[in-house]
Amino acid sequence: MTDTLAADVRVDVTSIEKQLADLWRAEKGEGEGAVTRAALWNMIAHTWSSQEHARATQVLALASAAVPQRTIVVQADPDGSAEIESWISANCHLVGGGRQVCSEEVVIRAAGERVHHVPPLVKALLLPDMPVAVWWVGDLPRDHHDYAETLLEPADRLIVDSAQFNGADDLELVSRIAEQTTTAPADLNWARLEEWRAATASLFDPAPMRERLAAIRSLRVTSGGDGSFGATAGALLYVAWMSAQLKADIAFELVSAGEAAGIASVEIEFNDGTKGMIQREASRGVVVAHSDATPAAQLDCIARVLASDTEDLIVRLLKRPEADKVYLKTLKIARRLAA
């Protein structure tokens, strides 16, 4: 697939929708009708800085190839001098047969008191009948609550990254949003766990191992990074997931070792002292699980390590049309464990 990115066009904020329509009309006039506009989601990326803004723009341009979307990237600087400006562009991808599929992108930069104009402007730009996701890039809002709440109001999905969380209160905030609103949180860090969950599940597929689910004594999860809350958040989510799915509290130990971020290994100990081991084999690009508990589990269960660039994680989260109920169950327990 070839990606092309149409140049940004600076437009007046009061006529963004009209300018988008003009853009398509011009495209239709020039081409042979092989350009298709598509959208399955309204995706709002919220950023506080120009670095985050640049990253979000790049990530969503790539993600729109797999999940067509109307992208609205907001850069808000409440402490700057009052101004608001906008650009429009199209992210186009060749899908074969000479057909180009294009997603629209709107960029809004606002500063000072004009920041409060952003939420109503964003609402006006949402495509009807399509779900709304808000990707909160970087720190969760600790100030400017009214602004954040208004921006989140139309959201069906709030995308966060718990690997960037500073402490348990961030989990608490996301968990409260899940419980008290119709906005379903989704976590990039949860998507990173997919191969770990798949490998663990496959270890317990054979009937003799299935019976051992009730005989898990403890979990020992080793993860890399700097030992901060964010670096161990994935391991915490893993333990919470096991507890949620087995409907039982499980003794656990989180260990920090190594520099590579993310989980490196999981050791499962059963009541009879036998063990299950799940490890990442980076060189082969797989997570491998096996156990000495039963002969059936001695065969290696492997799960491919999935692409984990941010755009890949976002695509995986958006390809799920409904809220992830397993994540929501997990989140509740993770919040309790973190506290």
Binding site: P141, E149, L173, T181, T182, T183
Partner: peptide, 11 residues
């Protein structure tokens, strides 16, 4: 962590 009042659509 300041309290964030949920003001979204209520479930």
């Amino acid at each position: 962590m300041p309290e964030m009042r949920p003001r979204f659509r209520e479930r």
